[in-house]
Amino acid sequence: MSGGAPAGAAGGRPRVGLFVTCLVDLYRPTVGFAAVKLLEDAGCEVVVPEAQTCCGQPAYNSGDRPDAMAIARQVIEAFRGFDYVVVPSGSCGGMLKDHYPALLAGDPAMKDAAEDLARRTFELTSFLVDVLGFENVRASLATSATYHDSCSGLRELGIKAQPRRLLAKVDGLELKELPGAEVCCGFGGTFCVKYPEISTDIVAKKTADIVATGASLLLAGDMGCLLNMAGRLKREGASVKVRHVAEVLAGMTDEPAIGEGGG
C-alpha cells in the first residue's frame, strides 16, 4: 500500500465510522460497499454504526431547525469514538463538517462534540487523497467518462482535484472534462420536488452538456445529483451510463448503472 494510513488513536489501523448517507443506504448499497472496500484497501478498519439514518439536511433546508438539531445530535452520538468519519457524499459531508457546528453553536452540551465530529469527518475521495495519501487504486474500466462536481462538495469542502486524481489511476479510463462541471445540476434536495419545472430546466441544460462531451459514463460523488442526472438522461433516451465515483474506483461496476435495468 502506498501513502500509508496514519495510525489510529490506539496505534493500530485507523478506525473509520462510515456514514453511509440515506440515499446510498436506500438506493444504492453498492456505493456503500465500494466505500468500505476502498477504505479497507487503504488500511482502515471500517465500522458502520446502526443508529444512523440521515444527516438531517431535508429538515435543515426546509427551515425545521429543531428537528435538524435533534438529528444532528443523534449522528454525533452514533459516531463518537471513531478516528475518522467518512461520507460518500459532499453534501452530507458538508452538513456534518460545516453545518453541524453552526447548528449546535448555541447548545453548550453539544457544541464541542459537533466541532469534534466536524474535525474528524471527511468526504470519501478527499479522505483517501488528502488524509491517507492513497494512490493504490486497483480498478480498470475501458471507457470514457466525464465528471460533475457536486456543489456542496466543491464549494463547502473544496473537492475538485481529489476524485480526478484517483480516477486517473483507473486502468483504461479516459476522463473528458465536462464544460460547466461546476454548475448545479438542479437537484437541490427538496428543491427538485418543490420547484420541479425549474429543476427540470436546470438539469436539461446539464444533460445537454454531458451528452456533448461524448463520454459513455457520467460520474459524480453525490447520489442526489446522480439520481437527478440519471433520471433526466434516461428520460431523454441518452445512452450515457451513470455511476457514483466510488463504484469505479473500487472496481465494482458489475451491477447495472443507476437507472439501468436487468443486469
Partner: peptide, 22 residues
C-alpha cells in the same frame, strides 16, 4: 412523485438497503 417524474425518470433502487446487506 409527479414533480420528479414530470421531467425525468426515477431510477429504481437496487432493492435491498445497505444496512440490511451489511
Amino acid at each position: 412523485a409527479g414533480g420528479w417524474t414530470a421531467g425525468r425518470d426515477l431510477p429504481a433502487p437496487q432493492g435491498r438497503t445497505f444496512q440490511e446487506l451489511w
